[in-house]
Each structure stands twice: as C-alpha cells, then as structure tokens.
C-alpha cells in the first residue's frame, strides 16, 4: 500500500462518523428542529453498539443496537421539545449531558475489553486496482452507507414529496399545518432519523475507529457534526465536503508532525476548529445561498393553537 492510499484511508475513517451524524442532523434541522444533543446520541450509539456486538459477537448486531440507542435518545428529545414544547437548545444540551453520564454508567461493565471489529467488505478484483482499489472498494459497510446516505438524502429532500413536506414544515410550520400536514409527527420522524444517524456514527467509533468502549469516546465529534450542518448551508453535498475537509485537516496535523515539521502540537490540534470557524463565516457570508436553504422555523416550537 502506498503512502498516499494510507493517508486517504485514514482520512476516510476520521471523516465517516462526522458525515453520518451531520447528515442526520441536517434532516432534523431541515424540519425546523435544532437538536444540540448530537454528542449525547452519538455516545449512546457507541456504548449500545459496543455492548451488543460484544455480547452477541456480531458487529452487525452492534450497528443495529447503536442505531437504536441513538433513536431512543432522540425520541426523548422529541417528546420534550415537540410534545412538552421545551426549549430546543436547553433540551439538546441536557441530552448531551445525560448521554455522557448514562453511557458511562452502562459502559462500566464493558471497559477494558477488546471489542469486535466491523471488518471491511472487500469487493473482489476491484480492490486490486492500483492506487484507488483499497480506497474505493475495500471499505466497511458504514463508509459505503455514508456515501449512499448523501445521495439518498439529496434525492429525498429535493426530488420527492417527503422532502417537500419536510422543507415545508421547516420553512413555515403554520402554512404546513394549514395545508394539512401533521407538523409534530413530521418533526418526530426527522428527529428520530437524526438520532439513528448519530447512533450509527457512535457505533462506527466503537466498532471500527477504535473497537473498544471508552468513556466519552465521542470526544466532541457531535459538536463538529453540528458545525458542519451550519457550514453546509443545509445542503447534503456540502456536508460531505465539510466532513472530509475537517477529517483532512485533522489527519494532516498528525501527518506533518511525523514528517518532522516543528510546529507546536497545540497549534496543529486547534487548526480543525479554526478552519471550521472560518468555513462557518465564509458560508454564512454567502447570503443568497443561506437564505434559500435555511429552514426559517429552526429552533421554534410549534403549537397549532396559535
């Protein structure tokens, strides 16, 4: 394997959990809901995924359990924000806090155990292609799925009736309601979708990235995913670009160190965050694009009586 392929493979691993979580949150936000609990859903996905895979010995079960863990947390959020109409910002923060604590408690029995790794699915013959073989055709199922998800979500949001409804609910919930759509139900569904994606991202961490359970192993990735959604101006293909941009900057910080370049490690570690902020500014600056795609109702509770 060449040095170039090795770097690309490392970047793919670093970017996939961000991409998965961000694309889910994008759908949630398109429906007008801001769920700041991505970190909490992700970490629950990680612990549930690990626990199930370890107990059953099957990483696929782990993926399923991770997904369900994320959905469970997201439904808690949905119940509070949609049914009880609590503040979305506060509830999202609470979800993160609860997720970090709860996952630690559940995971106590699983610390210090080697996990079951979700292995790559090598596509025969194609994987032997020079240069791109292992990059394009030697990945695990979640990597392939993350790319498929970008395509599916793009198609769904802009080409289908479902997408139309989601955008309508996020754009103006009163008109959507007047048109006869059940705003709350649509939002419940979109929140659950976001939870599922965050759960998958968490499962990716505990089954592929580092196949073991470690407290707080999401280490802030949920927040990065949230930033990526804003950075993307709510466009799925831009989430893809953003996730891979972040992953590249992250890995390059380590890469140049190994080459012997003397830059303080702290500066390299802070680069991804600085790049994210810069990207946020650049994207926010593009007024027309932002205006077209920003869900106008984001963060606002919907009460049909009003």
């Amino acid at each position: 394997m060449g040095a170039f392929e090795a770097v690309i493979l490392t970047i793919i691993t670093a970017s996939t959990p961000l991409l998965l979580a961000a694309i889910g949150e994008l759908v949630t936000e398109r429906a007008g809901v801001l769920n700041l609990g991505v970190e909490g859903m992700m970490i629950m996905g990680a612990v549930c995924g690990f626990a199930a895979a370890y107990t059953t010995g099957s990483p696929i079960f782990g993926v399923g359990a991770g997904l369900l863990g994320g959905v469970g947390m997201s439904l808690l959020f949905a119940f509070l924000t949609q049914t009880l109409m609590t503040s979305q910002v506060a509830t999202g923060l609470a979800l993160t806090l609860l997720g970090l604590g709860l996952s630690g408690l559940i995971g106590e029995a699983f610390t210090g155990l080697p996990g079951v790794k979700l292995g790559p699915i090598d596509i025969p013959f194609l994987i032997d292609l020079p240069f791109v073989g292992s990059i394009l055709f030697g990945q695990d199922i979640l990597v392939y799925f993350s790319f498929a998800l970008v395509a599916i979500v793009t198609y769904m949001l802009f080409r289908t009736r479902t997408g139309l409804i989601i955008n309508a609910v996020g754009g103006n919930h009163h008109s959507a309601h007047a048109l006869g759509y059940d705003v709350v139900k649509v939002r419940y569904a979109c929140i659950a979708f976001g939870g599922a994606c965050s759960g998958l991202a968490g499962a990716y961490l505990s089954l592929v990235y580092t196949p073991q359970w470690i407290e707080n192993m999401s280490s802030g990735r949920g927040w990065i995913a949230l930033a990526l959604v804003a950075f993307s101006s709510w466009l799925p293909r831009r989430v893809l670009v953003g996730a891979y941009l972040f992953g590249t900057v992250w890995i390059m910080g380590l890469y140049v160190q190994a080459l012997g370049v003397a830059i303080p490690a702290q500066l390299l570690s802070s680069l991804p965050y600085l790049v994210t902020i810069t990207a946020l500014i650049m994207m926010s600056g593009d007024k027309t694009l932002t205006k077209v795609n920003t869900p106008a109702c984001i963060g606002q509770p919907f009460a049909p009586e009003r």
């Binding site: 700041l36 910002v89 802030g220 927040w223 949230l226 930033a227 804003a230 702290q266 500066l267 570690s269 802070s270 965050y273 600085l274 994210t276 902020i277 946020l280 500014i281 926010s284 600056g285 007024k287 932002t290």
Partner: peptide
C-alpha cells in the same frame, strides 16, 4: 457581521482557548 451561528463558534473557540 456574518450571521455565523454563535452556538458553534463560541464552542469551537473553547477548544482553541484551552489549546492556547
């Protein structure tokens, strides 16, 4: 100035401050 989401920028800056 730019309409950048303050939740995210203020949070990212936490990491920057701690690394500084």
């Amino acid at each position: 100035r730019f309409g950048a989401n303050e939740i995210l920028t203020s949070l990212m800056l936490v990491y920057v401050a701690q690394l500084l």
